[in-house]
């Protein structure tokens, strides 16, 4: 993508803060006090990358129409890599909340620039790809212990009253039905 072709309004404070998780939500995730300052710094630096003149085009150039969701997730991942390289030891909760906020921001900017459209479906898919990328990266690097992760996820699923396996089975059943119809 060539520089200068994007017709993007400069980010003002309202825009930057538009989709940032409010304080009460942060509290629900245990982000308070010093952790909240870290979150604000992490996300703020991310927003500067997303909206800054020098970096914005580079980030947006990663969004392509052939795979908007995957490229959006990839773009967020790149921003997070930059932030992680500058600030070590940021908690996973901060990274999670900041990451999805930045995903929303990049999607908005890309839409404003006419690069791609991101409806709810696309955003959930992009978020899933971002999650998949980040989690697998953490496991491969040895940062996360799969056994601990599994246990925590099962506990969280219980609290959420959600059974992900049902969803997976539902998807697979649908695929199987489609396959048999097509056979």
């Amino acid at each position: 993508m060539q520089k200068g072709l994007l017709n993007i309004p400069e980010a003002d404070e309202a825009q930057k803060g538009g989709d940032i998780p409010p304080d009460d939500l942060l509290r629900q995730f245990g982000i308070e006090g010093e952790e909240k300052q870290i979150f604000e710094a992490y996300l703020g630096n991310g927003m500067q990358l997303i909206h800054g003149r020098e970096t914005r085009d580079k980030i947006l150039s990663r969004i392509n129409k052939d795979d908007p969701e995957g490229s959006l997730a990839n773009a967020v991942g790149v921003v997070m890599d930059v932030l992680d390289s500058k600030a070590k030891g940021v908690s996973d909760m901060v990274r999670f909340l900041a990451g999805i906020s930045m995903l929303g921001q990049i999607a908005e900017v890309a839409e404003a620039a006419g690069i791609a459209k991101f409806d709810d479906d696309a955003r959930v898919l992009a978020m899933s790809k971002l999650l998949a990328s980040q989690i697998s990266k953490g496991i491969r690097s040895g940062k996360y212990n799969p056994q601990e992760l599994k246990q925590a996820a099962q506990q969280a699923a219980t609290k959420l009253k959600i059974d992900p396996t049902k969803g997976m089975a539902e998807i697979a059943q649908g695929a199987s039905k489609r396959k048999s119809k097509g056979a």
């Binding site: 697998s136 496991i139 992760l149």
Partner: peptide
Amino acid sequence: VGGAVVGGVLGAATSAI
């Protein structure tokens, strides 16, 4: 969103194991 997070972690962990 919660389902995606939990499912993603569970799927990744199970695959890794």
